Amino acid sequence: MSFNALYTDLSGYYDVMCEDIDYRAQSNAVQRLHQIFGNGGNLHLDVACGTGPHVRHFIDNGYVSSGLDINQPMLDIAATRCPEAQFTCQDMGNFQVSDPQDLITCFLYSIHYSDGIEKLKACIESAHSALMSGGVFCFNAVDKDKIDNNLFVSHTVKKADNAFTFRSGWHYSGCGEKQALKLSIAKTNACDTQVWNDEHPMVAVSFAELITLLEPCFEVHVFEHNFEAITPWNTTSGNAIFACVKIQPPTVVATGQSTCC
């Protein structure tokens, strides 16, 4: 068994790794939230869009959808999957749009790829600036205070003569604004097993802290992490869906800096 880096670029394996994700259910749930809280528009941007599976579902349901990601190889796959959409290579911590959007999404806990509070604040500011009045910023998040470092999620997918086993889990030290997403990929065939391990730095934030960051500029609605039903957050679970409605423009103070978010 070798423990060297199995893949230098995950873009070609991303869809295999995420094969068990119900993109349709996630997209439909957010569209229901947008119908309830949104402004009636159909311009949509998916932040950290990866290879574009969510964008595909939004387009199929009548949205004018686009996406951004920091990984160009993934965007190349997304462009093939969604030739109608525009994709741009941008950092989610500081992105811009050519036209204001009615809905901005960030699925799969990707909001945590802001690897510190300041970058998370910048991401929230970018989303606020990119939205129409009454637009919705929707994402899912994990509460740092509810993380079980021993909990890992795993699944196995067979492709041709190979079996891929994917494991992921959150790790938080218990203090500070940094946590990690630990990933492991094992590729097994008749000859051997190769293992690739990685650890992605992520921002650690409690839901109380996150709501405090959002509330200056957004009307914040929090729901249980259930894509089959819209259920208000019970205030104790550590995974939730946030639907944030743009309620005001940023306030500019004497220094020229925005007080929003």
Rank of each mutant, 00 (worst) to 15 (best):
D148C: 09
N149K: 06
N149L: 09
N149S: 08
N150I: 06
L151W: 14
F152V: 14
F152G: 13
V153P: 02
S154V: 05
H155L: 07
T156G: 10
T156S: 15
K158V: 10
K158H: 08
K158E: 12
K159G: 11
K159M: 15
A160C: 15
F164M: 09
F166E: 10
R167M: 04
G169P: 05
W170C: 02
H171K: 14
H171V: 05
Y172G: 02
Y172N: 02
G174R: 03
G174L: 09
G174A: 04
C175V: 05
C175H: 02
C175W: 02
C175I: 02
G176D: 00
G176T: 01
E177R: 05
K178N: 07
K178Q: 07
K178L: 03
K178R: 13
Q179A: 08
Q179K: 04
Q179V: 01
L181S: 00
L181H: 00
K182V: 06
L183F: 05
L183P: 04
L183C: 06
L183V: 03
L183G: 03
S184R: 12
S184E: 12
S184L: 09
I185S: 05
I185M: 12
I185F: 08
I185Y: 02
A186T: 14
A186E: 13
K187S: 08
K187P: 03
T188W: 00
T188H: 03
T188K: 09
N189R: 00
N189T: 00
A190P: 00
C191A: 05
C191Y: 09
T193H: 06
T193C: 07
Q194G: 07
V195S: 00
N197P: 02
N197K: 10
N197D: 06
N197F: 01
D198A: 08
E199P: 14
H200D: 13
H200M: 14
P201L: 15
P201V: 10
A204Y: 01
A204I: 03
S206G: 11
F207N: 01
F207D: 01
A208S: 14
A208Q: 14
E209L: 13
I211W: 01
I211A: 11
T212F: 12
T212W: 03
L213S: 09
L213E: 13
L214K: 08
P216K: 12
P216V: 11
P216Y: 08
C217W: 05
E219M: 15
E219C: 07
